[in-house]
Structure formats: C-alpha cells, structure tokens
Design a protein around this nucleic acid. Structure first.
Length: 338
DNA sequence: CGCATAGA
DNA sequence: TCTATGCGG
C-alpha cells in the first residue's frame, strides 16, 4: 500500500492536534474507507453489519470522524479514486490475491478458534467495493460534505488541490501524495489517537509533513524523491528486491538511478511512472460546497436503512448541526483561512 | 475507529 | 483526569 519512504522522514514528522490545523482537508476517500473497513471489526474479525448482512463499519467511521472534523473547523473534502493508470494493473491483481488469501485464512482461523489470527486475516480480506463506495457517498451527501471522483488517482487530485489553494492539506495514511507534490500531508488524523496495527493497539498521534522541509532535509528534488519511490516500489511498479529507502536515497544522490534500473529492472520503464507522478490527470476547476447536515436523511439512512441506534446518532447530529451553523454552512469562500 | 462506561 | 475494556451494526 503506497510507497514506503517512512524511514526517510525522520525529523520531518511534526505532531499536530485537531485544533492546530483548521482549513480544507483533501481526504483520500478510498484510503479512509479502507482503514475503517479493515479496523472497525469485532474481535474475531466480523465487521459491523446490518440485519441483511451489509457491512456498515465504514459508515460508523465516516460519521464520527467527519463530525469531529467539522467541530474543529476542519472542512473535509473527500476525493475518490477514478480510473487507475494501466501500469497499476499488477498492483491491483496482487491486492486481489492478498484479499483472497486473507479470506481463506480468516475462515481457517475461525475454525480452529484462533481469534487474533482471525482478526488479522479479516483485515487482510478488506475490500472497498461498489456498495461501500455508494453508501459512503450517500452518507457524505446527507452530511453536507463535498466529495468528488478524481479522473485517476485520488492522491494526485488531493495534491493538486493543495497546491492550487482549493485545499489546505492532504489527508492520507499513504505517502504517495508527497510524490504527487502535495506541499502538506497530514497522517494519523484520527479522533482517539489509537490505531490497531497487526491486531495490536498502538497509540499514534496526528502528524504534519511538509514536502519542502522533507526535500530540504534530504537535500533532494521531487524528481529525485520519485526516483527513490520507483527504486523501492510504488503502486505502479514493483521495486527492486534488496533496495530499501536508505539504499535508494544513496543511489539517487549518486546519480546511479538509470544505471541501477537498467541493470536490476530492465523490464520496467521508469519514464511513464515518473511522468505520471509529475503530471497526473487531475481536475483543475472545482468549487467545494459545504451544506448544513440533513438530519432527516441521516436518520433515515443510518437508522432506518442500516439499523444504527437513534440514541447513538442523535447526539452526533446535535454536535454538527448547532455550533457551525451560519459560520460554515452554505458556500465557503476558499480564502476564509488565508 | 470512536464512544460509553468503569475503575484507578 | 486518565487508562482499560467492550460494544456498535
């Protein structure tokens, strides 16, 4: 999932709180849905679902997190993936294989009563399908929160909006938006500061990453950062076995990128990948609009349709329907936050 | 994940 | 006030 440049970010990951980052958050919607689906599960891996067996984990996650954003002056703009580039096909096929293996291991773990193993396998089986996407979009509509489908990668569109001023920062767990040029990336933007990794509870805090600071710290350009990504592997190519972030940094600094690619990955043409990161298909003109939440629709969708308890939903609606009325409802001017 | 509740 | 735990759908 995404490019693994984490070890290079030492010293560039600055802790932030919700209150520190008012503005328009360009959220990688597929990434957010994936996180909710993989994590919001019972101990044995069973996701939240209604009486008909439809999964509802993502609706719970979206609702509570979006409410928290709005309460803190963060204006969410959800950006969904459009058509992947052709060279992502291998990655997509690989993920399908991982999911299928996860499903099988989940069933096996349940059979032998291995709850922890079942949970981990269930996470691996996570899939963002059409039903998840459409129900998520309907919930966002009822919340009055804007969303769009990018022409191609959502992270690319997020980066474009951040750099054109439509958004203040990009929100994702992946680092890809940095390769796409997003000037600011916020990770771990969760309410509780808790995350389950490999079935274990870990405390993580929201962090802000500035692309320019990151590049300056390493003394490289964005083109060089993309070359590092290509060496270690991106969503669009496999990467070279035995080369991690540290080695890749050295290779790129030494100007040996092309040589190493030709020698170790002769079948991969880095040019289209480089080109895709530098100028991906994106939409330029877009005016996000935040509306007051439609409480009736929200109750109808969540409680009538998906079986959420009204007692759990009502307090959330009161939180987002009161304080921000007038201030944040209606059309927002982009310069509201400078 | 995020919320409510319980116990320190 | 804080941390641990269970539940939600």
């Amino acid at each position: 999932m995404g490019v693994s440049i984490r070890p290079l970010l030492e010293g560039c990951r600055h802790p932030v709180g919700f209150a520190d980052i008012p503005g328009v958050a360009a959220i990688d919607a597929n990434n957010a849905l994936y996180q909710f689906l993989s994590i919001i599960r019972q101990a044995d891996g069973t996701p939240l679902q209604d009486t008909q067996g439809r999964v509802t984990s993502h609706l719970s996650g979206l609702l509570f997190r979006t409410a928290h954003f709005l309460e803190n002056g963060i204006m969410p703009l959800y950006i969904f993936d459009g058509s992947p580039p052709v060279f992502k096909a291998r990655t997509i096929a690989g993920r399908r294989g991982i999911r299928q293996a996860g499903e099988e291991r989940w069933a096996e773990a349940l059979e032998r009563g291995d709850t922890d193993g079942a949970y981990r396998a269930a996470m691996q089986s996570t899939r963002v399908d059409g039903a998840i996407l459409s129900s998520g979009k309907r919930l966002l509509d009822a919340l009055g929160v804007p969303w769009m489908v990018a022409p191609s990668e959502g992270e690319a569109q997020s980066a474009h909006f951040v750099n054109s001023g439509i958004a203040t920062y990009s929100v994702s767990q992946d680092y890809d938006s940095l390769l796409f040029g997003a000037s600011v990336l916020i990770r771990n933007l969760t309410v509780s500061g808790k995350r389950r990794i490999g079935g274990r509870q870990v405390t993580v805090s929201p962090e802000r990453i500035s692309l320019s600071e990151f590049l300056d710290t390493l003394g490289i350009t964005r083109e060089q950062l993309i070359r590092i990504g290509i060496l270690i592997g991106t969503d669009f190519n496999e990467g070279i076995h035995g080369i991690g972030p540290k080695k890749a940094l050295k290779i790129v600094r030494d100007g040996r990128f092309s040589g190493v690619m030709e020698e170790k990955a002769p079948d991969t043409d880095p040019e289209p990948i480089m080109e895709f990161f530098l100028s991906p298909p994106v939409i330029d003109e877009y005016q996000p609009e935040w509306k007051p939440p439609d409480s009736d629709s929200l109750m109808k969708i969540l409680c009538d349709e998906y079986g959420f308890s009204p007692e759990r939903i009502r307090p959330v609606l009161e939180r987002i329907d009161g304080p921000q009325k007038g201030q944040q409802s209606g059309q927002m001017r982009l310069d509201a936050w400078g």
